[in-house]
């Protein structure tokens, strides 16, 4: 077991532990903080996969924007401190557990029959070329999705404006 495996296991354990704490902590801001830890762990996994650009985008977008948005949203709500002492489980939690177990079995089954794990990937150029390859394919092969993403985000913005702005006027 090399240093890479150890680092990967540590990062994966951190992601899992933090994710469990996200859903179990009663204080909403603490949940958001644990979410940041989980997202950071995912960034570390990206680095270990030699995908530095995605790691940094993970930090910029997910931690720098989305997590801050979450904290903001939490600040705008009442009942942050988790004053409710009741159970956090719904009475029919076992149905959800069963469904997610089924889903996991399905995913594992599909992935185990997938050939992609066994096939050898083509050798990668050096890192710098990797980013420019990405940029090139964004405006050639994936041109339509690239421009559509922009339009989609416009739609998202307009939707957000409609939902939260018009009514408050």
């Amino acid at each position: 077991m090399g240093a890479m495996q150890i680092l990967f296991l540590l990062a994966a354990a951190a992601v899992l532990g933090a994710a469990i704490l996200v859903v179990t902590s009663r204080n909403l801001v603490h949940a958001a903080l644990w979410l940041i830890v989980a997202l950071f762990g995912v960034a570390v996994v990206y680095v270990l996969l030699n995908a530095g650009f995605f790691a940094i985008v993970q930090v910029v977008i997910y931690i720098g924007a989305i997590a801050i948005l979450f904290i903001f949203a939490v600040m705008l709500t009442r009942q942050i401190g988790g004053k409710d002492g009741g159970s956090q489980n719904h009475s029919t939690w076992w149905v959800a557990a069963l469904l997610s177990l089924l889903l996991m079995v399905g995913i594992v089954w599909i992935l185990s029959t997938w050939q992609g794990f066994a096939t050898e990937l083509p050798a990668l150029a050096n890192e710098k070329e990797l980013i420019s390859e990405l940029g090139k394919s964004l405006v050639s092969t994936y041109l339509l999705p690239f421009e559509l993403a922009s339009v989609l985000l416009v739609a998202a913005l307009i939707g957000a404006i409609y939902v939260s702005w018009e009514k408050s006027r």
């Binding site: 930090v59 931690i63 720098g64 801050i68």
Partner: peptide, 8 residues
């Protein structure tokens, strides 16, 4: 990215 951490 690092600037965002300071803001946090």
């Amino acid at each position: 990215a690092v600037g965002a951490i300071g803001a946090l």
